[in-house]
Design a protein around this nucleic acid. Structure first.
Lengths: 231, 231
DNA sequence: CGATCTTTTGACCCCACTCAAGGTATGTGG
DNA sequence: CCACATACCTTGAGTGGGGTCAAAAGATCG
């Protein structure tokens, strides 16, 4: 689940005068709480948050990248979501599974918002409440897409869809080149594959001319249609 | 197939007077809208709703059971969720994929609430808004559990977890016996397996003494722990 | 009580996993 | 700047869990 993709264009309100909230939303839904937010910096691999029971904070990724993981007792790992700047998390942390959030890159920084303050903001500010409702619904829809991917797509389709999704999220400006901040093994655990299969699949896509790999962590999308599994 | 019996029986509410919200919530979050709700009855296999674009109604399952499916162009199917009495849906329908909702059993009946009315209720009634927020978050958490299942569980673990989940949802009173309203192939598309594998897996669980199968569609859970993949 | 659909079981196959080895990027100390 | 260590990535060979195809056995219903 990619928790949130911040749609700034939605907030480009022409009426600035009377609505301070919509002006704040040009940044992010919780901007009103920034004065009381805590900032945290992490290095690559560092654990940010472990959910044992309900979270006491909402988190917002400010810069860098993070992964939200679930572990089985025997070591199997599933990455539930990759988190990028603007993404919120923490609100769906129940203690059902062993969820971790870890930084992927050095210099990953986050803002922490106390749960109580967020809940108070939701009840007091209708625009924020609306925006958060939209964000949670959006992450639900994203989740359903991931369900299809993990359930019924082949390795080629999963990797293709992943690259397209990442290109949309990370490079709206340059939609044909993405820098993957995560390792192959992370992609594997995100797509429910093995690291070797991810490698092999990328090689196949390159040989087919669907993508180019200037460096190990840079991907250029050459033939977009070759990556889409027709639904 | 189209919806046939579209008789709008107004809900038979005994208490029509003004009630505090908390009293209404003893029934369900949208109870306040029951007076304007539409009732629909379906037979097995009948299509209830197809999402082409945002839905114009919220739905609540009153009785029976339904499945929410997504289809690929080549026929691959993934059942996103099974819907049972009390479950709400329709709110996460975006046009991204081809989602259908179909009745599983005869005499499945639903209540339809106009989108506009629901949204107005949300903004006007804080308790309802809170309750719905809780429900959406709950379905998000459920979804994350499914992601783990489809991503990293074996066939045995998926079927085991499915039976336990269903027992919790359908038989809180008699936790050791469940009647499965759906066919094997539905379970398969829910768990991202083949129908044959579901059959084989149930046989294995029976042979191991984890479950008993008095009839094809009745399951008794004999050894609960044998069904749990230790997380 | 025959027609049709669903479930079970068997035989075989394939996609992706595992194990393993070699190659490449990254970092560290001299 | 280089030598070395330590990741990480790629590629190959072989295996296995679950898919597909097929047929028989149950269920369901007119």
């Amino acid at each position: 689940m990619q928790i949130i993709q911040h749609h700034t264009e939605r907030s480009l309100d022409t009426n600035r005068g009377i609505q301070p909230t919509s002006a704040r939303l040009q940044q992010h839904p919780l901007a009103a709480l920034d004065p009381i937010a805590t900032r945290v910096r992490c290095r690559a691999g560092q654990q940010i948050h472990q959910s044992a029971g309900p979270a006491d904070h909402w988190y917002r990724v400010v810069s860098g990248a993070a992964r939200r993981c679930a572990f089985f007792a025997d070591g199997r790992r599933q990455i539930v979501a990759f988190l990028f700047p603007g993404d919120l998390f923490g609100f769906s942390s129940t203690g059902a599974y062993d969820f971790w959030v870890e930084a992927i890159t050095d210099r990953t920084s986050l803002a922490l918002y106390p749960n109580a303050a967020v809940e108070q903001l939701i009840t007091s500010d209708a625009v924020v409440a609306e925006e958060l409702r939209r964000l949670v619904l959006e992450s639900l829809v994203r989740m359903e897409g991931r369900l299809l991917a993990l359930g019924r797509m082949t390795a080629l389709e999963r990797v293709g869809a992943f690259l397209l999704d990442l290109a949309d999220r990370l490079g709206p400006v340059a939609p044909h080149g993405v820098t993957l901040p995560m390792r192959r093994h992370d992609i594997a655990d995100y797509l429910a594959l093995s690291g070797e299969t991810v490698s092999r699949t990328l090689t196949i896509l390159r040989q087919r001319g669907a993508i180019a790999l200037p460096t190990t962590h840079e991907v250029q999308i050459v033939d977009r249609r070759a990556l889409v599994p027709r639904l």
